[in-house]
Computed example of a mutant assay.
Amino acid sequence: MAIVHSTAIVHEGAQLHESVEVGAYAVIHANVKIGAGTKVGEHCVIDGHTTIGENNVFYRFCSIGGIPQDKKYANEVTRLEIGNGNTFREFVTINTGTAQDVGVTRIGDDNWIMAYVHIAHDCQIGSHTILANTVQLAGHIHVGDWAIVGGMSAAHQFIRIGAHSMTGGMSSIRQDIPPFVLGAGQPYKPAGINSEGLKRRGFTAEQIQVLREAYKTIYLRQLSLADALVDIKRLQSENPDSAAHLQLFLDFFAQSDRGLGRK
C-alpha cells in the first residue's frame, strides 16, 4: 500500500504504486495513476484522467489535472500525462487537454516547475526545462527540451518556445522563439544565442559559433525567412558537426504558425 496520511483522501479507482507518499489533506481522484517514488505534498489535488510517472515531487497546494479553462470544453474525456523526475513547486496548476487539439497535455522528464506556474490545456512541455516562478502558459503551447523561461513571463496560446532557448523574466511572448535563442522584453525581443547555457550542456565553441551564424542569418541580414532558411541549409552542409543542431532550426520553422518577432 502507498504511504497515505490519515487526513488525505484517495478515491476508489486511483492507482498508486506502493512507494508513493501522499501528504496531509491531499486529494487524489479516481482516474489518477501515480508511479513509483512520487511524493504528493500537503493539500495537493490531483484529478482528471491523469498519469504520473516515477520520482516526481509535488510540493504543497498543487492543483494537477483540472479541467481545461476553455469555454468550448464539454466534459470530453481528455488527459494529462507527466513523465519522470519532475519537480512542481507550490501552487502549480496544470490542466488536461481538449478535444480541439490532441486531447492531452504532456510534461516530459526532469523539469523544474517553480511556484505559481500555470500550464494550460494541450501544452506540450519537453524535458529538462525550467519554468520560473509565476510563468503563465496559455493553451496549445509547445516548449522544447532544455528551454528556460524567466519568472513572471506570459506566453500567448499556440506559440512555440524552442529547445535550448532562454527567455528573461517578465517577458511578453507573443510569437515563436526559435531554438538556442536568448531574449526578453515586453514584447519579447531576441538578443543572440544562449551561449552560456550551451557551454554548460557540452556544446563546443565551434558549434556555438555556427549557431551564431544561423542567428545572424535569421535576424540580422535582412533576408526573407525563405532565403534565410536556404542559407541555413547551406551552413548545415558545410558544418557536419552542427548538422543536427541546425536541423532543430529547420524543423522548428517548418512547424511555426505564429511567426517570430525580428528586430
Rank of each mutant, 00 (worst) to 15 (best):
M1S: 15
A2T: 08
A2E: 07
I3G: 08
S6I: 08
A8Y: 09
E12P: 01
L16I: 11
L16Y: 09
H17A: 15
H17M: 09
S19D: 08
V20Y: 07
V20F: 04
E21S: 12
E21Y: 02
V22Q: 03
V22Y: 05
Y25Q: 05
V27C: 09
K33Y: 01
I34R: 01
A36E: 15
G37P: 03
H43M: 05
C44R: 03
V45G: 00
D47F: 00
H49M: 01
T50S: 05
G53S: 00
N55Y: 11
V57L: 14
F58V: 01
I64N: 06
G65Q: 07
P68C: 00
Q69C: 03
Q69K: 12
Y73S: 00
L80P: 12
L80D: 13
G83M: 04
N84A: 02
N84M: 07
N84V: 03
G85Y: 07
G85A: 07
R89H: 15
T93H: 09
Q100Y: 10
Q100M: 13
Q100F: 08
V104A: 11
V104H: 05
R106P: 03
D109A: 03
Y116L: 00
H118E: 05
D122L: 04
C123N: 02
I125V: 14
A138D: 10
G139D: 00
I141F: 12
I141W: 13
G144H: 07
A147Q: 09
I148N: 14
V149F: 06
S153A: 04
A155P: 00
I159Y: 04
I161C: 10
A163T: 06
A163K: 10
H164P: 06
M166S: 14
G168R: 01
M170K: 02
S172T: 03
I173C: 05
Q175M: 08
P179G: 10
L182W: 04
G185M: 11
Q186T: 12
Y188H: 15
Y188A: 08
K189E: 12
K189P: 05
G192D: 03
N194T: 09
E196Y: 14
R201K: 15
G202W: 08
T204Q: 07
Q209F: 11
L211F: 03
E213T: 14
A214K: 02
A214P: 10
Y215M: 04
T217W: 08
Y219C: 11
S224K: 13
L225I: 11
D227T: 09
D227I: 02
R234M: 09
R234Q: 15
L235N: 12
E238I: 06
E238D: 13
N239R: 06
A243P: 10
H245F: 12
H245M: 13
L246Y: 05
F252M: 02
F253I: 09
A254N: 15
S256K: 13
R258T: 01
R262Q: 08
